[in-house]
Each structure stands twice: as C-alpha cells, then as structure tokens.
Design a protein around this nucleic acid. Structure first.
Lengths: 219, 219
DNA sequence: GATAAATTACCGACCAGTCAGTAATTAACA
DNA sequence: TGTTAATTACTGACTGGTCGGTAATTTATC
C-alpha cells in the first residue's frame, strides 16, 4: 500500500465536507471562464479541486446545478460590498462615481470573479433562468446605483443632465470591456500591454469632462 | 432551368456547389453565436443550411476549420469597408469620429456579423490561432484607425490631448458592449428596451464633450 | 464496527467524422 | 431529341471515442 507516497507529502485523502463546495465552485469558475461551460469536463473541475468526479456529485446534482452555484456564490459577496459603497460619499457625487468605478474594478473586475461577465455573456442564452437571476440580482441593482449617482450629481449641479438610462450602460461598458479583454485576447495572444490603472484613469478623466456642466471649470 | 419556386414543397434535393460554403458559414455563425462553439452540433448547422452533415464535410475539413472560415468570411468584407471610411472626412476629425462609431454599428454591430465579438471573446482562448488572426486583421487595424482619428483631432486642436493607447480601447467599449448585450441578455430576458440610436447619440455626445479642448465651446 | 466521505469502475447517450450508396447533372452518341 | 454512360453533389446509417452521471467499493473518523 506504501506505493508512491514520498514521506514528505501526505497525499492521503482527507474528509473536509465543509470546504468542498467552495473549492469546487472556485475550480469550476476558473475552468468555465477559461474554456466555456460546454467544453469544460467535470473530471477537470474535480481534479483542479483535488477530488474525484464522484465527490463532485456529493455536493452538486448536475453540471447545470454547478453552473448556477458558481454564479450565485461568485456574485453574492460582491452584492454585499456594493450596497455599502453607496452610502459613504453621499454628499460628493464625483467622489462617489470614482469610488464606484474604481471599486468595481478592485473588488470584482480584477479578482478571480472578473471572469464572470465573460462567462455570463457567453452562456446567457443557454441558461436563461441563471441569466435572469444575474440580471435582476446584479445588473439591475448595479444600474440603479449608477443612476442614483448620476441623478445626485445632476441635482447638485456637478453633472450636466444626461439620459440616465443609456448612460448607466455606457459608463459600465469600458469596465466590462477591460474584464472581458483580460480573459480573452490578453491570455492567448501576447498583447503589448494594457495597464488597468492607466486605463481607468483615462476613462474616468474622459467621463468627468464629458459630464461637466460648467465647461470652464475642471473637475 | 425552370427551377425557382417548388410549387407545393418539392423536397427534391438541389445541387448548388457555389452557394453552399456561404450558406454553411452563415448558418454556423448564427448557431455559434447563439449557443457557443462547443454546444453547437454539426447536424444543426447542416440542417439550418438545408443540407446533410455529410455535405458539410465536402466543404470543410473539420468543425475547427469551419470556425476559422466563419470568422474569416465574416470579417473580410468589413475590413474592406473600414479602410475606405478613413479617407472620406480627412479634414474633419469630429465628423470622422462620428462616421467611424456610427458606421461600425450600422455596417457591423447591428448586422448578422454583430455576433462575432461575442463568439470571438468566448472562444479566443480555445482557438488562439484564430484569435491571433482576428487581433492582427481586425482589432489592431481598427485601433490604428481610431488612433489616427484622435491624433488628427489633437493636431487640429479640436480634441484635447489624451492617452491614445487607452482611449482607443475605451471608445470602442460601449459599441462592443451594445453588440454583446444584444446577443446575450437582450435575447433571453425581456430587457425593458435599449434603443441603439439613442444609445449611440448619448455615447457620442459624452465623448465629444469629454474630448473638447476648449471647454467654453460646444461641439 | 458504524457511518460518512471519497474513489473507482462502469454505463449509456451523444456526437464528430466516415463511407457506401443515391440522385442530379453533364457528356457521348445516336 | 432521346438514351445511356460517366461524373459529381449529396445523403444518412454507422462507429469509435468521449463524457455526464451512477453504483459498488474502499478509506477515514469516531
């Protein structure tokens, strides 16, 4: 029985019921993002999580259920974090907008979770119920927060009046684009270089000037 | 020669060697965009093109080869069109930028080809050589054109000085976002409504003001 | 030893790719 | 202009491998 087992490492199989689901969804997320849902094998996911395929079925009923769990788990903590943000700089819409955009990148886009937009975009049509969940729990609240920020800015006279419905989308687009880019072309082709901080600063700079209601004044 | 309309459904099989590849790549594009590459069955593609799977293999060596052909065919005509655009308003960067952004949407984003960004983003990591082709043939030329426009605008004093490297990306993001949106959430969830023209106008408006070098003057 | 956690061996559906055969078209000959 | 032979576009049943899912078994822990 003392096959392999090189003294140092303990490859003995451990029973850790509590940690498994987390580890499995984390492994699944990274593989789904990397290869897509359909092209990802359950054996791979299990292997990356350090268990066998059978174990996976102790915690999830099916591949589809695993997908749902991946999205749910990946999104819930960010939702919490997001809600807090809105209250902090309530009297400074410019600062609020900056915190929102940079915070999105720092807490979501740049992390492991930054692959979710790619995954969700790719699979929305194949999983309409998950897409619906994501839309209602993530996108719409996010848009509502952005709209709130814009309206406060307009009310305080620091932003000019814009179409909030379209502008909320437009302001999220460059962030999403950065996240998508990092999980597609940036990985496979050696793209010159794309510094996120520089990108975000350029973007925020453009937006602030674009929203400036008093053209003589610089934000 | 008396072919055309098969009165009351003549399911007689026709031989149309010349039209097949086109029809097959068109069917493949729509299905790849809809369901993803891995989840699309060759039988489905063949059926949508009105032929059998065997016929597909008369024109394409493999599923992978079909994918390459889909991207290649989908992109080539737009490349042509794109090159022309640059020369027309050479002395009016604002107009040039407007034509570029609105033209992209009219000639590419809003058409059948508008699904390619979603497809290419999803599959870039699975098809690095196709991604490389797309990057070099489409993205980089597109960025170069955008940079050219920005630099001319700066030179003429109608745009303020910006970081062109990041700004080219930033200015394409809302267009790409719109195209991705239309092929993901817009299809499966009944999203309120998102008028492309309104979206584009809002976006262009924001950008123009954001690039304005003379804050007193309105573009 | 009892129980739960994890693994391994296995199944059956599915699907990319093949190929022997069929139907449409053209050429050959009258 | 028929009739037939040769060619070629096209078909669909088949297959070998793959993979989601399950059942039997082994291993850990108390």
């Amino acid at each position: 029985m003392a096959k392999s087992a090189p003294a140092t490492a303990r490859p003995t199989r451990r029973r850790r019921k509590e940690a498994r689901p987390q580890e499995l969804t984390a492994a699944a997320l990274s593989l789904f993002v990397e290869k897509g849902f359909a092209a990802t094998r359950l054996d791979e996911i299990a292997a990356r999580a350090g268990v066998s395929k059978g174990t996976l079925y102790l915690y999830f009923d099916s591949k589809d259920a695993l997908f749902l769990a991946v999205i749910r788990e990946g999104v819930l903590p960010v939702l919490e974090e997001g809600r807090k943000l809105l209250t902090i700089y309530a009297d400074d819409p410019v600062r609020m907008l900056r915190e929102y955009l940079f915070g999105w990148w720092a807490l979501f886009g740049s992390t492991e979770l930054g692959g979710i937009p790619k995954l969700m975009t790719s699979e929305a049509q194949n999983f309409p119920e998950v897409a619906d969940y994501y839309l209602k729990q993530v996108i719409q609240p996010g848009k509502a927060m952005m709209r709130e920020i814009l309206e406060r800015g307009v009310a305080k006279g620091v932003f000019r009046r814009v179409n909030t419905e379209t502008t909320t989308h437009i302001l999220m687009a460059p962030l999403l684009h950065l996240a998508l880019w990092r999980h597609s072309f940036a990985v496979c082709c050696q793209v010159p270089d794309m510094d996120p901080q520089l990108y975000l600063e350029s973007f925020f700079d453009l937006v602030l000037k674009g929203l400036n209601p008093v053209p003589g004044e610089v934000a």
